[in-house]
Amino acid sequence: MAQLTCDNVILGYEKTAVTGLINFSLNKGDYLYIIGDNGSGKSTLMKGILGLRKPMEGTILFGDGLKQNEIGYMPQQTIVQKDFPASVEEIVISGCLSRSGLRPFFTNKDKMLADEMLSKMEILDLKKRSYRELSGGQQQIVLLARALCATQKMLLLDEPVAGLDPETTEELYELVKKLNREEGVTIIMVSHDMHAVSKYASHVLNLVKEPVFFGTAEEYFASHAKGQEDK
């Protein structure tokens, strides 16, 4: 059974639909790129998958042992205030809350998991640093570590490289690729970076045109090339 299935889903705000009819399913270990112009509904679809917005039509199903609150999420722009006083440690471990239920404190297991994720992201040395004093790229990687504390099954990343320099971008992509290849984490990535799509994607969802395109990366580039020729 697929981990995530979108069955005839339409998403929108109040009564206006912002996306076309979306149909796709993802298996464990897939690497999906969602592309589309600004305002085509990429972030809205992310919120639908996370359960923050109900779809106007259709259903979003989870299977293969994945529950909706077991998805790690890296938001588009953290609206986090610039002067928010929090240490890297505090932020990363807050990802563990999904498992703590009503328990008011973190267990040693949570703390060890947070440390493990920090070292996996190669930022163990930043543990005690203040989040607001980090560079934009370091902040993104901290948020990635937080998402990993929430899950090791599926990661949703909404334009994680926006505003990063090419080197840090590459670093972040490699980290995500490693998670995908070595640990079998399913990745859903929103991006405008077509170069990265051709390099990393196993599947592509293009929200921009009606009908919404979904297929493997090869299918996407084949149809894309054909589209160019037709013009």
Binding site: L50, L52, Q68, P75, I79, E90, I91, R146
Partner: peptide, 15 residues
């Protein structure tokens, strides 16, 4: 803390 820092993420993890 989680809700103050990032409400969307908190909601996504089931808080």
């Amino acid at each position: 803390f989680a809700i103050t820092f990032d409400e969307d993420f908190a909601a996504a993890t089931g808080i």
